[in-house]
Amino acid sequence: MSGRRHQDYLIVGVMAAIALFFLLPFVWILLTSLKPEAEVFSRSLWPSALQFDNYARLLDKMPFWQYLRNSVLITAISVLGVVLSSSLVGYAFGCIEWRGRNFLFYFVIATMMLPMQVTMIPIFVIFKELGWLNTFKPLTVPMFLGGGAFNIFLMRQFFMTVPASLLDAARIDGCSELGIWWRVVLPLARPALATVAILTFMFTWNDFLTPLIYLSDQAKGTLALGLGQLAGQQQPEWAVLMAASVLMMLPVIVLFFLFQKYFIQGFTMSGIKE
């Protein structure tokens, strides 16, 4: 019995050591962002005085509020577009029997494996011809057109767990398909909607490449783009950069602790990190 106990202590010890590997960077980054400028380039871990000067200086370094507004706007519209359209399309593939359904679903799956670089250049040309460069439209409009193969897949998987008898009962009661989608399936599918919404939020909030391609106008930039530019300067000011990173991470971390379950569901079902 006591041998078993000792083994448990050993395991917890190993776990704690690994936890340091994952956690220490966060602590250190937070401390850097609170250090006085003179102490950033020193080996001492703990600042002599905690202060928020770097956060204030960040406001001079980049149009923070403008970028925040742009990021929030783009992210909000994207989440709305993806949740709406992927749930509609997921309903088509999960709840209705129709000719061509399986055939088209193969294409949905196939596009998951498509490297986005293949379509990137022609799509850029389309948006350029439409005169949409330096607007938010290239970032938001496509979100209303299906919402991405993975999200459709996730919605479909979830909708398929709704009993067919429930759908048929609603149909017999004279409910239209649109009515069933809205009044029967969506209320049941809240966990799936939340998972898709969270993944879309994460993806859009962090997205760097799309704004980089389409938003070259300073006033149109997003936080992710602004952070990347700030880091690309010749003599990066690390304390300010860490303050910017902390601010950008904050909503993600708050959301994580509020909706841990959906985060984990989303991550275990998707390869979305890349």
Partner: peptide
């Protein structure tokens, strides 16, 4: 089916 799938 096609209507619901039309966005995609």
């Amino acid at each position: 089916g096609y209507l619901f799938a039309s966005p995609w």
